[in-house]
Design a protein around this nucleic acid. Structure first.
Length: 428
RNA sequence: GUGGGCGUAGCUCAGUUGGUUAGAGCGCCAGGUUGUGGUCCUGGAGGCCGCGGGUUCGACCCCCGUCGCUCACCCCA
């Protein structure tokens, strides 16, 4: 007798996704893969973990993600790794390492890890999909990346998505702006929220991102980024906005939009699902990162990308009531019911599948009634019946499982005509 | 890291001032006169009532702890 074992559970903040829920994932991922293909992107796979520095350098040592949310571990060789908290840094590391020809257009889907207390729309392991383009700072690419996300959301069925956009300038004009902002904050510091009273000097941009009234009241009076861009950055930003509007994509300028990672330069943007409540409305975002390649040891290379949270997208689809659309239209064609007593199903199913039909069957030699029930619940279009009679005569009965009148919904055909007959029926 | 709610069959949940054999619906299985599924009828399987300790003659119910789920804050996808 072995000791009773308490069943294992998935770790805190992680989830198993089983059918039928997983069908939504399949549809969403397949849709995105198709979009990426149509926009000229190719799939890139990178490791789930990287040296900690890959993420620290890029997203900023003192960002919340780097400070307290990374899943860090040491391997047997005492190397320090982190499970990826987001997609971009790994992709740029791969770019720097392999130096592929540019423009490099990569798409990905990956789990992402953040050590935090789970709640609705926020998990320790969630999933992100996105694209990156390295090797050009053409504003047309900014437009293309944003358009891809925008059209992808629309294809999923989302209608209430808002695009917020901003420009953070390049290194120098941002530095000038930060100096101005600091000056402003210095005179108003006592009015900031508790947290930023302490940290405004070190990271004034974060104050813009603060959602507390205290900080908003202070910054709203102060200088705004878009008003202090250099000529080049202003021109770049204007061309992005103009490009979007030429495609009929409405963007809202949000001068406070700074986002959580330090690597962003120039264009930054965020997609907000209006159907969602509270802090988890952000379903995706991204921006330009023209210095990240250098920060990871590569040559100076412009880049831009966006990432979207799969769980958040699914929540938004649910909230808009479009989560149940079958994006892949995956239904079973056939279900084989075998009561021949001779395992006729094994060969028959193999033949039907080889002919291209999506086919399932029952097991364990159950009664016909039981098998028919399973056939019905499988959602298959037709049941293929092989009883002793059909088996002896070398025939099968094809029964329409969606017909309303049970009596006349079936026909019996010879083995050699099965594939042709079914093809005929299914294409009607 | 802080706080609220909840942990009873596979799922959704009841469970009377603590009283002896813990219930329902759905799902599952088997039948409703031996080849045919959506409805209906009958029967059945399936619960250390999250876990550990305490109070009590007696705990699913009360107390403490613990683990887990969930929601919110922070921040983010």
């Amino acid at each position: 007798m072995s000791e009773p074992v308490t069943p294992f559970q998935a770790p805190v903040g992680t989830h198993d996704v089983l059918g039928p829920e997983s069908a939504k994932w399949e549809g969403l991922i397949a849709t995105f893969a198709d979009f990426a293909y149509r926009y000229g992107f190719s799939l890139v796979l990178t490791p789930l973990f990287e040296e900690v520095g890959v993420f620290n350098r890029g997203i900023g040592e003192d960002s919340d993600v780097a400070k307290k949310e990374m899943y860090i571990f040491e391997d047997r060789g005492q190397r320090r790794f982190a499970l990826r908290p987001e997609g971009t840094a790994s992709l740029v590391r791969a770019f720097v390492q392999h130096q592929p020809k540019t423009p490099w257009k990569a798409w990905y889907i990956t789990p992402a890890f953040r050590y935090e207390r789970p709640q609705a729309g926020r998990y320790r392991q969630h999933h992100q999909l996105g694209v990156e383009v390295l090797g050009t700072d053409d504003p047309a690419v900014d437009v293309e990346v944003i358009a891809l996300a925008w059209r992808f959301y629309a294809a999923l069925g989302l209608t209430r998505v808002r695009l917020l956009i901003n420009s953070m300038g390049h290194e120098e004009c941002r530095a000038d702006y930060v100096a101005l902002l600091r000056e402003h904050l210095a005179s108003q510091a006592v009015w900031l929220c508790d947290e930023h009273q302490k940290s405004w000097w070190e990271n004034p941009l974060r104050v813009l991102d603060c959602k507390k009234d205290a900080c908003i009241n202070v910054t709203i009076e102060g200088p705004m980024l878009p008003d202090h861009l250099c000529d080049d950055c202003r021109d770049h930003f204007q061309r992005v906005v103009a490009g979007l509007s030429s495609l009929g994509i409405a963007s809202t300028l949000d001068p406070r939009l700074v986002r959580g990672f330090d690597y962003y330069t120039r264009t930054t943007f965020e997609f907000v699902a209006e159907a969602l409540e509270g802090a988890q409305k952000s379903i995706g975002g991204g921006g330009r990162y023209d210095r990240l390649s250098e920060q990871l040891g590569g040559k100076p290379t412009s880049g831009i990308g966006f990432g979207s949270g799969v769980e958040r997208l699914l929540l938004a689809l649910e909230a808009e009531g479009v989560a149940d659309r079958d994006l892949l239209n995956r239904t079973l064609d056939l279900f084989v019911v075998d009561t021949s007593g001779e395992d006729a199903a094994t060969a028959l199913v193999d033949r039907l599948r080889s002919a291209g039909f999506a086919t399932d069957r029952a097991y364990d030699r159950r009664s016909m009634k039981a098998q028919m029930k399973v056939a019905d619940k499988s959602g298959a279009r037709y049941a293929i019946l092989v009883g002793p009679q059909e088996y002896a005569a070398g025939e099968v009965t094809i029964r329409d499982l969606r017909s309303e009148n049970f009596g006349q919904a079936q026909q019996t055909v010879a083995q050699k005509d099965i594939v042709a007959t079914i093809s005929d029926l299914l294409t009607k």
